[in-house]
Design a protein around this nucleic acid. Structure first.
Lengths: 126, 126
DNA sequence: CCGTATCCGATCCGATACTG
DNA sequence: CAGTATCGGATCGGATACGG
């Protein structure tokens, strides 16, 4: 990657803030990933993510909606249905995120090994 | 991106954990970015990042070192010098991160606009 | 120069209870 | 069904002080 630290002097690097707002938290990437494959309603999404609370899901969806990467559509039936979907803007995130995801799958074992080695060294010194 | 939510049922998706451990916090990406351009000593890095505390820098460097993406080399001079550098494993992160960074720079304005629109709508309803 | 230790406020995130 | 409201534990991250 190019060195971006030049921009981060004095003023807090704004790129980082925008970037982490899309992917820096626990659930954002999974939600984007799931919505990329198909639009989904609130509870369908909740079941699919497995383990997220209503509160966290609502919060994350709101933030992503505010950022313009997902869309919220209320279907006036009884009871109400709400469908979430990826926007064109959100769709452009797909490839970069997928690349990072692929990196992780490819190198997870190496990272685990590095951790074991590090911990073993730390153990020895203690 | 492919839908990864299938893996995230019941067991907490491990890919996400490994991924966020490299890039999910405030300073990791900036540090990786800076070390990609050249190895650097502790205080040089600190000055370059601008705004990070010693504590946060140490913590982040330790975690990244433990994950095997950066290396720490102690140069026994007086006083001690410590040089941090990117590892081969860390180098493979360069392209995926750069892609995400480029996405942000390219679409930051759109995100800002989406936020304004969202906030304006919210304002109106209130 | 390169850390470690401690305190402390802010935020994250889960659990739980309640509503149109 | 799709939220909102509230509480509380855990973690993050800055400020500060001290040590090898």
């Amino acid at each position: 990657m190019q060195d971006v630290t030049a921009d981060s002097h004095s003023t807090v690097c704004p790129v980082r803030l925008f970037l982490l707002d899309q992917i820096g938290d626990k659930w954002s990437m999974l939600i984007l990933s799931s919505l990329c494959s198909e639009p989904q309603r609130f509870n369908a999404l909740k079941r699919r993510l497995g383990g997220i609370t209503q509160k966290s899901l609502t919060q994350t969806l709101r933030r992503l909606e505010r950022n313009g990467v997902i869309a919220r559509r209320v279907i006036p039936s009884t009871p109400v249905a709400v469908e979430y979907s990826i926007t064109p803007l959100g769709g452009t995130l797909r490839k970069p995120i997928q690349a990072l995801w692929a990196w992780t799958e490819a190198h997870m074992a190496e990272v685990e090994e590095a951790r074991r080695a590090f911990d073993a060294r730390a153990e020895q010194e203690a």
